[in-house]
Design a protein around this nucleic acid. Structure first.
Length: 578
RNA sequence: CGGGGCGUGGCGCAGUCCGGUUAGCGCGCUUGACUGGGGGUCAAGAGGUCGCAGGUUCGAAUCCUGUCGCCCCGACCA
């Protein structure tokens, strides 16, 4: 075993904060010498960064294997034909990276770089899985993905090229032994084990499974300001969801209002909630926002309070429609009889779904369905009928969960996603196998993703301090740094080397800082790179026959006899582990 | 894709408005001396097609036109 000496290794630390890095994980990963950007959205992992990445991979692999998943490896290059089969060439648009550049009919033009691997794995299932006796089965890989993200950002948190652990399970049934539900639960449990072992403070939320998705989906989120998603959590800890999904308790009817008579007001050119509420000197929450959608080809009217936003996912589910998009100007004119900006619920013949919060409003202001006019004194039930109502808005600060517990909002980053796909891909790719009756049936599938690079960045985001990275031991580039303070001192040098060698022999992942630099420089570097345990061998300590042992996370430090170091470190690593 | 900002040695920046010697400064790097428990000191060095391409001019990092790249906000995101 070759000893690991800093002077002969490569950890290009830097005192300077990179100008292009806005979030802590990005700044620290660059400063600690873990990564270097190559182009927007693609990074090299330098030696210490790659060590960490490999450790994360190893944990993922172990837990996936333990859960019964089988590892394989698929290429990044896919034939576009398979993507055409599932209709995702159009669905993914620019996100799908194509080689292109040829005549349009050559191999380059027919090759894409995989952003995910449902198509490839489903083709393989179609080719090989012919009997229900081969099921259930779960294939996974850790592989590079390519996505033409419009805007890569936040260092390694959002990139165009990244490492993903993706798993795909195949089942004959949804329920029962060997069914999708069971396979899904196994992955769910494996994910908990993976993120726990990686030391991440994660939260599991219900996610919106999207317009064509299956019926269940959970996301594994790590709270951090650098995140792009919103996590909504009940204070009692009993409910957590993605903002896209978060359900809210009905608002109470506070009464109030004078049951004023409905009155038309001239509001020339005033279309937005802001414009109208300012002009009429009312609050946005006194207004009813009337939004016209085109749902499965017909007009659908959604009503929300002026200070609320429609949640299109909730609306789609409430309406029971497949497609939902904001109506164009022509459909709006046809539906309301007015220009865009003056819609109101009264007198409309189209289907109307009101948010619950609208049902408890009094003397509201809304559009008159007449260009340049609004109406005041509108009372739901009296002035327009509410045939359908429900929770169709985006949760906001101040809302409560259905059980009444107040909701808190936190930014977070998604590190994992488990998804019940159903037969979406097996249907479109005609992937079937024979059931016990000898009848061909489409595979019922699940898919399960983990962003490997994101685990590293999310850990740094959520655990760093002002001095640098604070690694969870399990994914630190090195577990222990032995720092020799004065190399010209033979005793110091000899003892530091001895401790390093003994630790290494004991199976500890250790690096010896043997650089000829001043103590402060080496301490600061150690804090920046974030080794969980630091052992300092110096003349002063040695005079008392002691070395210093310090824990990065707590800063706690103790002086110990050199003979006790190996045993002591072993214990510490177990303690610090999570 | 809309809005904003920035491209000058490995890193962080000044110089650009108002064109004019060999393009500066700090960090880092090399060599030497000193120093040695929280990012040392001194001395001597190496390192730059000023993103790229055209143009204006006696003369361009600086002015004009175009173009590419990177970052931030927004839109988008299986």
């Amino acid at each position: 075993m070759r000893s690991m000496r800093w002077s002969q290794y490569f950890i290009p630390t830097s005192k300077e904060v990179p100008a292009d890095a806005a979030v802590p994980s990005h700044q620290l990963m660059v400063r600690a010498g873990l990564i270097r950007q190559v182009v927007a959205g693609a990074y090299s992992y330098l030696p210490p960064g790659y060590r960490s990445l490999r450790k994360i991979e190893a944990i993922v692999r172990e837990e996936m294997n333990r859960a019964g998943a089988i590892e394989l490896h698929m290429p990044a290059m896919h034939p576009i034909e398979w993507w055409e089969e599932t209709g995702r060439v159009a669905a993914m648009g620019e996100v799908l990276v194509r080689l292109g550049g040829g005549t349009g009919d050559d191999w380059r033009s027919r090759t894409v770089l995989g952003p995910t691997h449902e198509e490839v794995i489903t083709e393989h299932a179609r080719a090989y899985l012919k009997s229900y006796k081969q099921l259930p089965i779960n294939f996974y890989q850790i592989q590079t993905k390519f996505r033409g993200e419009a805007r890569p950002k936040s260092g390694v948190l959002r990139t165009r090229e990244f490492l993903m652990k993706d798993a795909y399970s195949f089942h004959m049934t949804k329920e029962g032994p060997g069914g999708l539900d069971e396979g899904y639960q196994k992955m769910y449990d494996a994910y908990c084990a993976i993120f726990s072992r990686c030391g991440l403070p994660y939260v599991i939320v219900e996610a919106d499974s999207g317009p064509i998705g299956g019926d269940a989906s959970h996301e594994f989120m790590v709270p951090t300001d650098a995140g792009e998603d919103w996590l909504v959590q009940a204070e009692d800890g009993k409910y957590a969801a993605n903002l896209e999904r978060a359900e809210v308790a009905p608002l109470p009817d506070l009464g109030g209002g004078r049951n004023a008579a409905i009155a038309e007001v001239h509001t020339p050119g005033l279309r937005t909630i802001d414009e109208v509420s300012t002009f009429l000197k009312c609050k946005p929450s006194d207004m009813i926002k009337t939004i016209i959608y085109e749902a499965d080809g017909a007009a659908l009217v959604a009503l929300v309070r002026g200070d609320h936003e429609v949640n299109e996912g909730k609306l789609r589910r409430a309406a029971g429609v497949k497609s939902l998009q904001q109506a164009d100007a022509e459909l709006i004119r046809k539906t309301t009889g007015a220009e865009v900006g003056f819609a109101g619920p009264a007198g409309l013949t189209a289907r109307i779904i009101a948010d619950q919060a609208v049902t408890v409003m009094h003397d509201a202001v809304t559009g008159a369905n007449k260009t340049d006019y609004h109406v005041t004194g509108v009372n739901p039930g009296r002035d327009f009928k509410i045939a359908e109502s429900g929770d169709v808005r985006v949760a906001v600060q101040g809302d409560r969960a259905r059980n009444g517990s107040p909701l808190a909002f936190k930014k977070c980053i998604e590190v994992g996603h488990v998804f019940k796909l159903g037969t979406k891909y097996s249907d479109s790719m005609k992937a079937t196998c024979l059931d016990a009756e000898g009848k061909p049936r489409a595979f019922i599938m699940g898919c399960y993703g983990i962003g490997v690079n994101r685990i590293m960045a999310a850990a740094i985001e959520s655990l760093h301090d002002e001095k640098g990275i604070v690694w969870p031991t399990s994914i630190a580039p090195f577990e222990v740094a032995v720092i020799a303070l004065d190399l010209r001192d033979e005793q110091v040098n000899a003892l530091a080397t001895k401790l390093h060698n003994e630790l290494e022999a004991a199976g500890v992942d250790v690096i010896l800082d043997d650089r000829d630099a001043r103590p402060g420089f080496k301490f600061n570097d150690a804090d920046l790179v974030g080794f969980p345990v630091r052992i300092v061998v110096g003349k002063k300590g040695l005079a008392e026959g002691l070395v210093e042992l310090q824990i990065r996370k707590t800063g706690e430090s103790r002086k110990v006899a050199p003979e006790t170091v190996v045993g002591g470190v072993g214990e510490l690593l177990r303690d610090v582990a999570l």
